[in-house]
Nucleic acid binder design. Structure first.
Length: 151
DNA sequence: GCCAACGTTGGC
DNA sequence: GCCAACGTTGGC
């Protein structure tokens, strides 16, 4: 089982939105970066644990835990010309973008980026590197354990 | 709203 | 296949 950190803009989908959904589940649609796509498509397995991270907002940081509950399949938004994630180069025969489904596990207190930076054991996290923009990043087990420990 | 960092695009 | 230009991300 692997651990991940997945960013979402709370104005789009927040941890509360996830908790309120039917089955507490949502498709992680809208990823348009190949590296992040590959993580979902090639590496994520059912049961993988996810830190749910709020980004591009007033209080960026980890706000909850989710888990992968469905393996990657084509992101339906790529085929919808009315959707902002529409990709004219994608076809149902050759889809370009994939997403997993994630299920709500729990809310946590906000662990903001400043606090994350305050723990030496976490300084290697991808999310803390300058210029990092990847919306999905692996979290190593020691880092996961450390963060769970401070919750 | 600024702007550094980075991924993608497209002309050559 | 290089690389400049461009668009986007995301913390601040």
């Amino acid at each position: 089982m692997r651990y991940w950190l997945m960013k979402s803009e709370p104005s789009d989908v927040s941890i509360d939105d996830l908790a309120k959904r039917a089955n507490k589940t949502i498709a992680w649609y809208g990823v348009r970066n190949y590296q992040a796509r590959n993580f979902m498509r090639d590496q994520m397995r059912i049961g993988d644990q996810v830190f749910f991270y709020h980004s591009s907002c007033k209080h960026p940081g980890i706000v909850g835990i989710a888990e992968v509950c469905k393996l990657a399949y084509p992101d339906t938004t790529q085929f919808d010309s009315n959707n902002k994630y529409f990709d004219p180069k994608a076809t149902s025969e050759i889809p370009r973008w994939f997403n997993v489904d994630v299920r709500f596990v729990s809310k946590t207190r906000l662990i903001d980026i400043k606090e994350l930076r305050s723990y030496p054991d976490l300084l290697g996290m991808r999310i803390l590197q300058k210029g990092n923009r990847l919306s999905i990043t692996p979290v190593d087990p020691a880092e996961w354990k450390c963060i769970i420990g401070i919750m």
